Computed example of a mutant assay.
Amino acid sequence: MIDPSIVEKWLRGWSLSRGLPLPAKSDSGFRVDVGWPEQKTRYVFPGFTNEFIDLANTITEPRVFLKVCAPPGVIKNRIPSRWVIQPPGFMMTCFKTMSSPKSALPDGYVLEVRNEAPVSLAKVLTTNGDIAAIGRLVFVDDFVIYDRIETDLLHRRKGLATMIMKTLEDIAISSGKTNAVLVATEAGKALYETLGWTLYTPYTSVVIP
């Protein structure tokens, strides 16, 4: 059973991480007015509900995302064909210290950390100042939300994402918080599993292009 409060806390953190309005509660989910050219609005549902179906049937404008904590097969044949299923997402949780030890950075990189409430930011930079990896952390009540963990294509497979995660974890632990949640891509899921994260629920998105 998916806990709606965990989904709401994650979405609040997602919004804070991006400087967006906080989510508004709907009948069975949440709405964020994103306002980006590529994403006008997102609706997020802890489960597949009649409200999700109603929105899918009535919305015809592009770049409005419907997102649900369920696998794609649950919704595939129950919404109009104008909606396109996006690459899979995975909501993951970690309620303990991550399993991988924090190792030293490879030569040629430096770590930069900034705590600017409500967002803590960790970056791995090259000696030229280019961003090789980056990630953000937001506290929402008793949860830690990890967000926008990214490694530049030219700097992958060097342990930089792990360095980012462990650096952010140090910030969380210093605040006495260990309950953590994030949404991962398929590639990111594999990394987080090595760090001790577990799958909480599949996370499926659809949009009208």
Rank of each mutant, 00 (worst) to 15 (best):
A70Y: 07
T127E: 13
K76V: 11
Y109I: 09
L66W: 01
W83M: 01
S103N: 14
N128R: 12
T127V: 11
F143G: 02
R114Y: 06
A122V: 11
N77V: 10
T97W: 09
G159S: 07
F139G: 03
V140W: 02
A122P: 04
A133T: 09
W197Q: 01
D130N: 12
V140G: 01
K96R: 15
L195W: 05
Y146V: 09
R136L: 14
L191T: 08
L182T: 06
L111F: 06
P106S: 06
C94T: 05
M163V: 15
K177D: 05
H155D: 08
F95H: 15
G129F: 02
V64L: 05
F52L: 11
K189N: 07
G176S: 11
P118K: 06
V84Q: 14
W197A: 00
G73K: 13
D170A: 14
G135C: 03
L137H: 02
T60R: 14
G89L: 08
L199A: 03
M92Y: 02
P62M: 06
A56Q: 08
P106A: 09
Y109A: 06
R78F: 09
G135M: 04
Y192V: 02
L125F: 07
K96C: 09
P118H: 04
R82P: 07
S81F: 12
M98V: 09
I59H: 01
D170N: 14
Q86V: 06
I75Q: 01
I171D: 01
K123I: 00
L182M: 13
N115E: 15
G188T: 02
Y146N: 09
F143P: 01
G73H: 13
N179C: 12
E61C: 07
V84A: 12
D107S: 15
P80E: 10
G196Q: 06
I134Y: 13
D142G: 07
W197T: 05
N57T: 02
L137N: 00
R136D: 10
D107A: 15
T178H: 11
V68P: 00
L153G: 10
G188I: 03
T60I: 12
S99E: 15
M163Y: 10
N77W: 07
P101F: 04
T198P: 06
E193R: 10
T151C: 03
R136W: 02
R114L: 13
R82G: 07
R136I: 03
E150F: 11
A122R: 00
T151H: 01
R82M: 12
D141Y: 06
D130H: 10
N57E: 14
L66I: 02
D170E: 15
P87C: 05
